[in-house]
């Protein structure tokens, strides 16, 4: 049943990829940049949803892994003198390790308490980055990170982002559909029952947290490619809040929900913050509207809408 759903959706996925591949041919540089930002932000939100939507873990401060991935990559490139490509491995791996460490500390706590402690520890990471001026550049961040030629042009960075995002999204999808993913969703639904069928729930969740951290880190690395900069706000808690809203808005039970949510939020952020300085207020209103009117997100709503149509026929 699952594989047939996948086969039915595959043509759409391929069509979307082809359109995305053609974007630089007819879109302005700015829109290509914006699309790249949407893609990598969507990947970040999807990696959050891996543990939030599918794992039921209250990962409230996911931006930390995005930031660690970005800083890991930028620092590796600017400070080590080794091949810049190595930076794209170091960043995500560092994020995975931080994800594992924070996970180990928080996993004993249940749900909301997990989220609270995670926010504190994440803010600690942010504070270290913010204060450690000599190493991280403090609140200035790092600018003009030198990149390999092939990905330093506007189109090069776009295609790199598109390919890495597509591959990452595919890997995460496979993981959700794997036995590991089945067990993870079982734990989300019912942790006690999961343990009673022989699943070591905490250990499964720890691996999930590392994986989520890793792909959050991949998204951060991609930001370095697209924007050439890193700055501490990348791991500030407000971005984490935005990521959660993306998941809720797009639909945290649909695989592509967070990607759709990311597109909406990034576009709004780009255009609204041009008009008003009250972005946080707008965000709050969106959050409330989603909770009241679209509890299953945009895709959840569409899904139900389509099913109803089919049934009425």
């Amino acid at each position: 049943m699952n594989s047939s759903v996948f086969r039915r959706k595959l043509p759409w996925v391929i069509a979307a990829l082809v359109v995305l591949l053609c974007f630089p041919l007819f879109l302005d540089r700015f829109y290509v940049y914006l699309t790249a930002i949407i893609l990598l932000t969507g990947l970040c939100a999807t990696s959050l949803n891996f543990v939030l939507g599918y794992g039921g873990v209250f990962q409230f401060h996911h931006a930390v892994f995005y930031g660690v991935g970005a800083y890991g990559t930028a620092l590796m490139i600017t400070k080590s003198g080794l091949s810049p490509w190595l930076g794209f491995i170091v960043g995500p791996v560092a994020a995975a390790i931080v994800g594992l460490v924070i996970g180990v500390i928080c996993i004993r706590l249940s749900k909301l308490y997990f989220g609270m402690l995670q926010i504190s520890l994440g803010s600690l990471v942010w504070a270290i980055v913010y204060r450690w001026y000599s190493f991280t550049g403090g609140d200035d961040g790092i600018h003009g990170v030198p990149l390999p030629d092939i990905i330093s042009s506007s189109n090069g960075s776009y295609y790199f982002t598109l390919i890495v995002t597509a591959v990452s999204m595919f890997i995460l999808y496979r993981m959700i559909k794997s036995p590991f993913g089945s067990a993870l969703q079982g734990i989300r639904d019912n942790p006690v029952r999961s343990e009673m069928i022989g699943v070591n729930a905490k250990l499964q969740q720890l691996l999930a947290l590392s994986i989520a951290g890793f792909f959050g880190g991949v998204a951060g690395s991609l930001f370095v490619v697209v924007d050439n900069t890193v700055f501490p706000d990348m791991m500030f808690w407000t971005l984490s809040l935005e990521l959660i809203i993306m998941c809720l808005l797009g639909g945290w039970l649909s695989y592509l929900g967070p990607m759709v949510g990311a597109a909406v939020i990034v576009l709004l952020r780009t255009y609204v913050s041009g008009i008003t300085g009250y972005w946080a207020l707008v965000l709050g209103v969106i959050m409330m509207a989603v909770i009241f009117f679209l509890p299953n997100g945009v895709l959840g709503y569409l899904d139900r809408f389509v099913k109803k149509k089919v049934r009425n026929k």
Partner: peptide, 10 residues
């Protein structure tokens, strides 16, 4: 099999 990350459960 719960550590199997890549074979589809289906």
């Amino acid at each position: 099999r719960t550590w199997n990350l890549f074979t589809p459960s289906a």
